[in-house]
Write a protein that binds this DNA or RNA. Structure first.
Lengths: 237, 237
DNA sequence: CCTCGTATAATTGTATACAATATACCTTTC
DNA sequence: GAAAGGTATATTGTATACAATTATACGAGG
């Protein structure tokens, strides 16, 4: 639930706060800052060459993005994701991506349709070549296209939030490696349902796509990695 | 997508920032600050007797809650809600409240079940007496109980976000006045389905409850009030 | 050897000073 | 008179100083 207009996004890359925010977000998602690690205002400020003020404001934003947790008078800690969180997110995403696909069937633009087809074509190509990075990138982009195509800033933003949130997990599992082909086939089916104007089918397929992605994650060791993680450990009191 | 642990919520009522944040949120939701109104740091700081620093930090949080929009180097403006936003939210909520009811069927605690029953009983009582304020309060509380009962901090938080977001609109329509009895009857049906352990029915009823609430809103003049509102007017460039 | 308390250091919370940017109004010029 | 430009003013952006809170280290007492 945030701002819905990119043009006036306050996380603007020209302000120090915006740059700090984006840098920290990237570093958290990429794993530079590990779970439960404490982020100190002065340290980060010095590292980026800014004062504490923009760092503090960036912290407030990161907290509402769910990436850190701020404990008053104590500090800011990178949030952990539990296995249950991941499960919940995929349950929610299953429903909302379905809704998104249903809406997109009516609202998708010609350009978006074309990019979606191209995305699937390219993904097949890189799958043949074994380009894992590109495959992951295209997978992310496919979903972003779908989100943008539903013509609902609110739904788009909500889904992007959840999507970004689980990216952290995907990087630690091998899910993307083992499911590239199957995932892209499902993308193709969704795309074709949208193209054919079959909103009900598109919704159903998108629902199932999320369920499959989650099941695959579990199979590939989600439990082992995140099964015991809890936020409470951050303090080890 | 924010912090999921109230105990360590940084919007803590003991910090100045937390108090400013809560005060401003309440004032926006209650309509004290109208749509597209500009919020100035110094003015608000003086009004609350604090400096700009906590006000600025509160602004960053309010923005991510979607209540204001910050335009870099210009100012903070109360966001408008379009009729389409409301429609989108109710579509999303319909699905997610259904999911929530389904999960709650398995997870609800004895205490929550009792509070839910009591809520419905009380709502009937106040309906007889025509106590509109209490009815609205109980309606909100019913949904909060449901959210808490699903045993998913993530889903709970997401739904509370959306719920709070549309509260602004409800205060301007007469929807709550004209649907009290029907709404409470639907609450009772949902409660009984949960009590009976029929997760599928609970989900279906919760889905429909949202659809009915939205339809009623539209009937009661949502379009007239919000049909033309767009965020773009904030700048009148 | 452990526990508690106090002092000290480290860190966050807040206020204020200064810089950068945007806006409004006035002046100038055509 | 209208448009362009510039200056003054207001507002936000950032840095820094100071206050409050919390964590840590160390020593006294048991």
């Amino acid at each position: 639930m945030t701002n819905y207009d990119k043009k006036y996004d306050a996380n603007d890359k020209y302000s120090l706060r915006g740059r700090v925010f984006q840098k920290l977000r990237e570093d958290i998602l990429s794993g530079k800052y590990k779970e439960h690690e404490e982020l100190k205002e002065v340290a980060i400020g010095e590292e980026l060459g800014v004062s504490r003020t923009p760092v503090r404001e960036a912290f407030r934003q990161l907290e509402l993005e769910g990436l850190i947790r701020i404990v008053p008078n104590k500090g800011a800690y990178v949030t952990g994701i539990t296995a249950k969180d991941v499960k919940d997110i995929y349950m929610i995403r299953s429903l909302l991506e379905g809704l998104c696909a249903r809406l997109a069937t009516e609202k998708i633009s010609k350009e978006q349709m074309e990019e979606m087809e191209e995305n699937i074509y390219l993904a097949d190509f890189h799958e043949d070549k074994g380009h894992l990075d590109q495959i992951a990138e295209l997978d992310n982009r496919f979903h972003d296209i779908l989100y943008e195509a539903c013509d609902s800033k609110l739904l788009e933003h909500t889904l992007k939030d959840f999507h970004r949130y689980v990216l952290r997990v995907r990087q630690k599992t091998l899910a993307t490696n083992t499911r590239g082909r199957a995932s892209n086939d499902e993308h193709r089916q969704i795309m074709e349902a949208i193209k054919a104007g079959d909103a009900g089918l598109a919704e159903k397929l998108a629902n199932q796509h999320m369920i499959n992605a989650y099941d695959n994650m579990v199979k590939n060791g989600l439990k082992e990695i995140y099964g015991e993680t809890t936020d409470e450990k951050a303090k080890d009191a």
